[in-house]
């Protein structure tokens, strides 16, 4: 399997070249946020307040890592299920978000917002938190420290492994993969 290496912030060209099913290795800065952080970020947008990071062209990773042991950058850090962020994702895309990393299906609203705002959804392997942590080179809490593992973190990643689930052309790996293998079990 060939990998596409991509770097953040994501350019329009990079995004346009990605297709559903592409295995990618992501490098650069990404930001973490889960349920409560999303609620707060969208509240800031509603109130015309600045976000804790520049969201233009960026990727948000849906993760709540386990605590780092002394001397480690981060604990285990695999994806959480994405649908819980569906309510908040379209407004973040409207304000410049270009990528999301998580696991599991997205709503129709999120999928049409991805087409409209030219953003991509990447799937990471749930339950592979020890493996994924190896691609995380630095981690810094930049907002909502009181949320503990759910705080917003700025991560530097190198060759973070993921797969394109939804591209900007309406492709959906979950639908396509299921159709391809339905009934094939012997």
């Amino acid at each position: 399997m060939e990998f596409k290496k991509i770097t953040t912030p994501l350019s329009e060209d990079t995004i346009a070249a990605l297709r559903t099913g592409d295995e990618v290795l992501i490098s650069g800065t990404i930001y973490t946020a889960r349920d409560e952080a999303h609620r707060r970020l969208t509240l800031l947008i509603a109130e015309n307040m600045p976000l804790p990071f520049n969201i233009e062209g960026q990727i948000i990773y849906y993760v709540g890592p386990s605590p780092a042991k002394p001397g480690e950058v981060i604990g285990s850090a695999g994806p959480t299920t994405s649908y819980r962020m569906d309510k908040y994702a379209p407004v973040l895309m409207e304000h410049g978000l270009k990528g999301m990393i998580g696991k599991g299906k997205r709503s129709e609203e999120v999928k049409s917002a991805m087409k409209k705002y030219k953003a991509v959804y990447f799937g990471a392997i749930g339950g592979a938190g020890a493996l994924i942590a190896k691609s995380i080179k630095s981690s810094k809490v930049i907002a909502y420290e009181e949320l503990l593992s759910e705080a917003v973190r700025e991560l530097t990643v190198e060759d973070f492994p993921a797969i394109v689930v939804n591209d900007i052309f309406g492709g959906d790996l979950y639908n396509e993969g299921k159709l391809k293998f339905a009934g094939k079990f012997k």
Binding site: I125, L173, G177, L179, K180, F181, K184, K186
Partner: peptide
């Protein structure tokens, strides 16, 4: 269940 087609992490499979 294995005939559904979901597969490992839902990317398609048996």
């Amino acid at each position: 269940i294995n005939k559904i087609g979901t597969g490992p992490m839902g990317f398609g499979g048996v």
